[in-house]
Design a binder for these strands. Structure first.
Length: 915
RNA sequence: GGGCGCUUAGCUCAGGUGGUCAGAGCAGCUCGCUUACAACGAGCAGGUCGGGGGUUCGAGUCCCUCAGCGCCCACCA
């Protein structure tokens, strides 16, 4: 039976639940107790019977499981949890799953360091392999299956620690829906989405210049680049003209790439070189004829105004090479060393083959750096180096996790067509509601700056493989141009183990047989499908229809160009829609030097310690005070505020609840000391959003009734003016908090609620505690107002401070505050202007009395002989309405009110001796 | 080179549409064990809101400009 089934007239006599108020409320232990209870009751389980319109779905970031969580995680995940809790109280079924990104390079690197191993794909699988207890000095080469096993072992261990922290943080995620990005389901989703792109031609495999990290031996995407300033040098080199004219001088920082030179290029408007366009020059040392060409990217004021185009020194080279349709003469191999260059043969024609070969023999096999040193000597000796190299500092592209500058090598990679989508993607970005709005600019500038399609293949081991094989020709060569795709019903497949349809296992690698695609997908190629993975795309269509497109993507601004961008791409290509309506971009936590906290700087605060020292609610208060998109400097001192607030919530609730005990004792059920008051019981029950209080009912089973929409309420009458004033101000606060949360300004919402709460405690409680406690006239009004206000405040604070509010709520309710209805301003009656001002006016006078007592160094209970208030008529009239309460709170014998034109002023005469 | 954000008390930060907006907490100082709260409460002191100019009856709040810090994008021969 639910609340709505129950006859209304029974409601007032239904017993109120709750455990009663403890002697000494405390924050300690609340996290453990309530997380266990929420788990047992399934408080945050997603109700998948609800329709899409009643669902609020969150595309939670799956943290990378390659180490430990830091304060930044605590910060941003708390902000998302506030939204989730708010929406849940707004009667939404909140779809709030979480995943672990255990896929990819960071995990591999961590496994290598942790166990002291490295993956050698040629090594045989050892089923009995156990890593050494201590990582050996020399990394142990192990097979790919063994390596992947270790990856899984380590990530599973980390995932337990991560979940434990997030539970302690009070994240209201549905832990029953946890996923990992290497799970079979995620692999199926990722491979399926890839296959659909490939069959529609939106993903393609091509031999192309590829950003390459030599140390990781893998391709890198544009999104993973970062610039670093490193020392270099300009070398001025002389290129002879084929027509015998005066030599042309160019400047380069990469002289070792002279053998890979395919053209010189200058700006089309550059008069110095215009006559040379279309003519031919010879490369120094190698005598290879290359054309002089014009291209607008060439800048006349850079170097000598004419540049050497090599395959490939940088991304500009790639652009020139592509747009000018130049030939390729690549010399840098995947190991970062100069590989064979067949001077004299087709494509490597030269004026002097023997000289070119001799020169190149000095370079071949050397690393890029060593070759540079050697060729400078050669160029110097041949007289082609003009002057001395000129040292400079310049920005060079690195893989963000790498240690050496990237090379650009030619390789076969899978690409997703993003370049042709640019305009569409900008439009999608404009449709998305960004919080804060200016983050849209980050996205747009990234999309505008795309210079190639998205490379999704990585030459790594721990990741989701491409569900693709290639035929092996009769000559034993792999034909990469004719992929054999796995059918969707076979997914997930590992082409290094599984066999394509129509082939036998023993045909692997043999002429006429097949070979598996050796690569794995980039981690973003899978993470970009987080809505599809979490929402059960094609795996659970009923669920997917109820949650997708999602309502919210929360994430950091550092991964707009990766996670956010690629998710938009995948959704556009697969579904033709935005993946979510809102993007909430959180800021970073910075250390006092305004640097992003990172382990390498040794400035990381361990989240568990932070929670231990301050309590979860305190940390959450700090995190949810911040504005979205704004970086915050970490300052543990700030945790005190939230801790104090949480304690105050417990104390204030204890006080108001215990004041309710004596009300209408005659009708109070014996043994149920915290039963609600009679007169307004029916409305209070709705206020608190609880089901009519059948004791013993579990939270989960009463959830449906808690989410019933509230009925309009009768006006709350009769109330003392001061009580009505307090409730009116509370109503205004509810409105402000609701508006703020609706626009993702949780910090503002919290600030408004908190501000009201302190006024409530400092002024209102002090003013009415006597009246409420004493009984008699006005007592019921005060107690009713106290109960309504306490119920409302606990619900307003619940998303921010979930443990203290749940604890306090439990003293008088059987249900969870987190399943209670978010308060509606209308519940509290319609405020009028006079009522709004009353509490403030009386509170101001009370403040003056306190000041007088402090100045006189008397306690707050010290009696006031004579209290006089001067002020304008309307204000005096307000003070008069609260006069009795004021006198009691001030411990004043007499109150004189005097009408004057001036502003409010208060005269306090204390008694000489304590009464 | 293009763009964005920030610059408010010693510290960390609030200050939607310009007019009690000069605020909060921390730190500091002074009091107070008052029956919700001493791991607490009350109170005090602290800033010409980065500089300059402008719009306006009136500007942390709008415009211009300069400076510093941070970030994004591009370039990087």
């Amino acid at each position: 039976m639910t609340a709505t089934d129950q006859p209304k007239d029974l409601a007032p006599t239904a017993p109120r639940g709750g455990t009663g108020v403890p002697e000494r409320p405390a924050l300690e232990g609340l996290e453990e107790r309530w997380s266990a209870r929420w788990e047992a009751d399934g408080t945050y389980r997603f109700d998948r019977s609800r329709e899409r319109a009643d669902v609020f779905s969150i595309d939670t970031p799956p943290p990378t499981v390659s180490g430990s969580l830091h304060v930044g995680h605590v910060f941003s995940y708390t902000q998302t949890d506030v939204v989730a809790r708010y929406q849940r109280m707004r009667a939404k079924a909140v779809f709030y799953p979480i995943g672990w990104d255990d896929n990819g390079l960071p995990t591999e690197r961590r496994v290598q360091n942790y166990f002291g191993v490295r993956c050698d794909p040629s090594a045989p699988y050892d089923p009995a392999f156990e890593p050494p207890a201590e990582p050996p000095a020399e990394a142990l080469a192990i097979s790919r299956p063994n390596f992947v096993e270790l990856c899984r072992r380590l990530t599973e261990r980390d995932e337990v620690a991560f979940e434990s922290l997030f539970r302690r943080l009070g994240l209201s995620v549905d832990w029953s829906r946890t996923y990992t990005t290497v799970s079979a389901a995620a692999q199926r989703t990722s491979q399926r989405a890839f296959l659909r792109l490939a069959t529609r031609g939106k993903a393609y495999r091509r031999e192309a210049p590829t950003l390459w990290d030599v140390d990781f031996a893998s391709a890198i995407a544009q999104a993973e680049l970062e610039d670093r300033e490193i020392p270099g040098a300009y070398h001025r080199l002389r290129f002879a003209r084929a027509d015998g004219g005066p030599a042309i001088e160019i400047e380069t920082t990469r002289p070792e790439l002279v053998p890979a030179c395919v053209a010189l290029v200058a700006n089309p408007d550059d008069d110095r070189y215009r006559p040379l366009f279309g003519t031919t020059v010879l490369t120094p040392l190698f005598g290879v004829p290359v054309p002089v060409r014009a291209h607008p990217l060439a800048e006349p004021d850079k170097g000598s105004g004419i540049a050497m185009v090599c395959t490939f020194g940088d991304l500009t080279d790639v652009t020139w090479w592509r747009e000018l349709a130049l030939p390729a003469r690549t010399i840098v191999g995947r190991d970062g060393r100069l590989e064979r260059a067949p001077f004299g043969e087709t494509g490597w024609e030269t004026a002097d083959a023997s000289r070119a070969r001799a020169a190149y023999a000095e370079l071949e096999g050397r690393t890029v750096r060593a070759a540079r040193r050697r060729i400078v000597e050669l160029l110097s000796a041949s007289g082609d180096l003009v002057g001395e190299p000129r040292p400079i500092t310049h920005a060079v592209k690195f893989y963000e996790k790498g240690d050496r500058p990237l090379e650009i090598v030619s390789s076969q990679q899978w690409y997703v067509r993003t370049l042709e989508l640019r305009e569409r993607l900008v439009e999608r970005g404009a449709e998305l509601a960004w919080h804060p709005a200016f983050m849209q600019g980050r996205y747009e500038s990234w999309v505008d700056g795309l210079n190639g399609d998205w490379n999704i293949s990585r030459q790594r081991f721990f990741g989701i493989p491409f569900p693709v094989w290639y035929p092996v020709g009769d000559d034993g060569s792999i034909d990469g141009s004719r992929p054999i795709f796995a059918p969707e019903h076979r997914l997930p497949v590992d082409p290094s183990v599984d066999v394509p349809d129509g082939f036998a296992p023993d045909q692997r690698g043999l002429p006429g047989g097949f070979a598996g695609d050796p690569d794995v997908m980039d981690t973003w190629a899978t993470s970009s499908l987080s809505p599809q993975i979490a929402g059960g795309w094609e795996e659970d269509p009923d669920l997917f229809a109820r949650v997708f497109p999602m309502d919210l993507r929360p994430q950091g601004h550092d991964i707009i160009r990766t996670w956010l961008f690629t998710t938009v791409v995948r959704s556009e290509l697969e579904h033709g829609t935005l993946p979510w309506r809102n993007a909430a971009i959180s800021g970073w936590i910075l250390d006092p030097d305004r640097k992003k906290m990172s382990k390498s700087k040794g400035n990381v605060v361990v989240p568990n310690d932070l929670l231990e020292r301050n309590g979860t609610d305190a940390v959450r208060y700090w995190a949810s005070s911040a504005r979205l998109g704004v970086d915050t400097i970490f300052d543990e001192q700030q945790m005190k505020i939230g801790r104090r607030l949480a304690i105050k919530i417990l104390q204030a609730t204890k006080f108001t609840i215990s004041r309710l005990d004596g009300r209408d004792a005659a009708t109070n059920d014996a043994g149920r000391p915290h039963d609600a008051g009679r007169p307004h019981d029916a409305r209070l029950r709705r206020d608190s959003g609880e089901a009519s209080g059948t004791t013993g009912r579990s939270i989960a089973s009463s959830r449906a009734s808690a989410l019933e929409p509230l009925e309009p309420l009768e006006p709350l009458e009769p109330l003392e003016p001061l009580d009505a004033s307090m409730l009116a101000r509370l109503g205004a606060t509810v409105q402000e908090a609701t508006d703020a949360l609706d626009s993702y300004e949780h910090g503002r919402a919290l600030e408004r609620v908190e501000h009201f709460f302190w006024t409530f405690c400092d002024d209102y409680l002090e003013l009415v505690k006597g009246r409420a406690y004493r009984g008699g006239p006005g007592s019921d009004s005060a107690r009713t107002a106290l109960e309504v206000a306490t119920s409302t405040l606990l619900r307003l604070f619940a998303p921010f401070v979930p443990f203290a509010t749940e604890e306090a709520w439990s003293w008088w309710h059987d249900t969870s505050v987190h399943l209670a209805a978010w308060p509606e301003p209308g519940e509290l009656g319609v405020p009028d202007a006079a009522q709004l001002g009353l509490l403030g006016a009386v509170g101001q006078v009370l403040g003056e009395v306190r000041r007088a007592k402090t100045v006189a160094k008397r306690s707050m209970r010290w009696p006031v002989q004579r209290l006089t208030v001067h002020g304008p008529g309307p204000t005096i009239d307000l003070v008069a309405l609260g006069g009795d309460d004021l006198c009691e709170a001030a411990n004043a014998a007499t109150l004189d009110l005097v009408h004057v034109e001036d502003d409010l002023s208060v005269t306090v005469v204390l008694t000489d001796e304590s009464a």
